[in-house]
Design a protein around this nucleic acid. Structure first.
Lengths: 118, 118
DNA sequence: CCAGAGGATTGACAGCCGTCGATGGAACTC
DNA sequence: GAGTTCCATCGACGGCTGTCAATCCTCTGG
C-alpha cells in the first residue's frame, strides 16, 4: 500500500491506434525465470516449506521416519513431497542401511533468495 | 553437494519397537508455512516471475497492454496471472481511466526472502 | 447517444497436484 | 529362510492450474 505512483503517460490516447509499445523488458532471462519458478513451485506447499525448515537446521541427522510424525500426512505422501524437493534440486537423500537421511542443498534456496533480495 | 553428514543414531534398532521419536520440530508455525507457501505458489510460474521482475523496476509506470507483448500469451491469460499475483498479495493494481497499472507490494517478497535468507 | 478500446470474466479443455490405500523392494534380525 | 522394518512406487480419486475463444463491463471520444 501507499506506493508512490507517477503516472504520466498516455493521458491522451490517439483514437484508433494501438495503446502503446513495450517500453520495458524483463531483467531475468526466460531460462532464469523458469528455474526460479521451479524452485518456487517446490516451495508452494506448506508441508514442503516446513520440511525444508526442519532439514535446514538438522542436515543429515533426521531420518524420514522421524519426519513423518511432524505432519498429519501418510507415509507415501511424505515420500512424494521429498521426491518433489529432490527433483527440484532443493534436497538430496543419503541412504544408510534401512534409513534415509534427507538434507538441504543450499544453492537452490540462495538462487531464489538472491533474486528476491536483489 | 558434499554436505558433511554426521549420522550417529540408530545403528542398532530395537526390533519390534518404533523406529524413532520426533526429535526436532519446525521453526516456522503452520500458519507461517502456509503464508510462505502461498507466496511461493504465486511465483511458481515463469510468466509471473518475469511479471514481478518487470513491475519491480517500473512500479506504476507500466500498463497492462504494455506488458502483454513481452509474453507469448493471450490477454485473458495475462489478466489471470495478474489476478493470481494480486490474490497472493504480491501486487496491487491502480486503475486510471481505461488503463490499469499494476505495481509490486514489497512486503510479501521480503517475507519469503527473509525466511530463505535467515 | 454510439462506437471503440482496455481489461476482467466466463466456460471449456487437457494436464498436473496432493492425498490415500495397496503393493513392492531392500536391508536388517533372528 | 522367515519375518520385520523403512521407504519407494503404483493406481486412483477430486481438485486446482494455465491456456484459449468468446463475452461482458467500463471508460473515452465524438
Amino acid at each position: 500500500m501507499a506506493v508512490d505512483l507517477t503516472l504520466a503517460p498516455k493521458q491522451k490516447r490517439p483514437v484508433g491506434e494501438a495503446c502503446c509499445e513495450p517500453l520495458v523488458h524483463p531483467d531475468v532471462s526466460v531460462t532464469q525465470a523458469a528455474r526460479l519458478a521451479q524452485v518456487a513451485k517446490a516451495l508452494s506447499d506448506p508441508v514442503r516449506v516446513q520440511l525444508v525448515d526442519v532439514l535446514r537446521r538438522h542436515a543429515g541427522k533426521v531420518c524420514v521416519c522421524e519426519l513423518q510424525p511432524l505432519f498429519d500426512i501418510g507415509q507415501p505422501t511424505l515420500s512424494h513431497h521429498l521426491k518433489k524437493l529432490r527433483e527440484a534440486g532443493l534436497i538430496d537423500i543419503e541412504r544408510r542401511g534401512l534409513w534415509a537421511y534427507p538434507y538441504v542443498l543450499p544453492d537452490a534456496l540462495e538462487e531464489l533468495s538472491g533474486w528476491l533480495g536483489g
